[in-house]
Amino acid sequence: MQKIFSTLRTPKGCLGCLGILILTLALAVGGLMVGGVVNKSYHLPEISLAAEGIPLPFEIPLFGHSVPNTLPATWLSMLVLIVVAFFATRKMELVPSGLQNAVEAIVEMFYNFVEGVAGERARIFFPLVATFFFFILISNWMGILPGYGSFGVWEEHEGQLVLIPFFRSANAHLSTTIALAIVSVGATQYFGFKLLGKPFLNRYFTFKGSPKKEEAAAGGLARLVGKLGGIMERVGNAFAGILELISEFIKILSFSFRLFGNIFAGEVLLIVVSFLCAFLASLPFMALEIFVGFVQALIFSMLSLVFFMIATAHHD
């Protein structure tokens, strides 16, 4: 971090920053001029809760004539991750340098984070949790890139020309986040079975009462009361198991709605702000979106980790 700042302070770094600033302004002004030429009928963009479908000239089985525009974005973020991972691990050296060094530093930072929460079980959970984190982080951050939401085809929709962008931030589609949530909750069950075995099912289906209460009652009326208490406890435990089962479904919903809501709200916020004032006003909101994207990725992976930990904890 300090190295970056010290490089920026040199004349070369200052010149580079100035160049980037001028380039950004030139692009913005150029875009403003070209935008009027390309499409004269200028109106506000359509904000749609569902991902828009990109029309295709041919038909894909099961999909029909269109593909949701979060699909290319998802593939793009996957591609970025795969390419970075490929080039970082192609020439592995014991003393890393360049890209390998950078990737190792990031992965190690996140590993320490996971280890601080999960302790010795971090080695089992880390691959999945890190995949969640990096995929969500990269797709959130890539959603802010220019070209997302602005580059697409015009299509007639209810008598109006509507821009169908080719890319839309991957997590601004409920299907993506539900898929991630199902993987996370499914993995919770898998890890529970793997580490606890059959007793894991006792979380959901249990009719056991604590044996102490039934033995403690001696005889007569006290025994009857004790037995009744035992039955009540069994029913209560069974009810608690059903509650656990419901809460698994609630978990899928809460995982997916939180991520979707935050990212989609960010997209809408950026669109609205940039249409209120095209220059510089959206800059602080972009910084906010970078922060929100990071925090949401962290929260998703952290919560998955907490649930893995709870599912694999030994009950007695």
Partner: peptide, 25 residues
Amino acid sequence: DMKNAVWVLAVGSQIGLSIALPVVL
């Protein structure tokens, strides 16, 4: 402390949602 901060954020939002979502469901 980043870990505690994220933990509080995550668990807090999960608790909030687990009150709201059963109604919607």
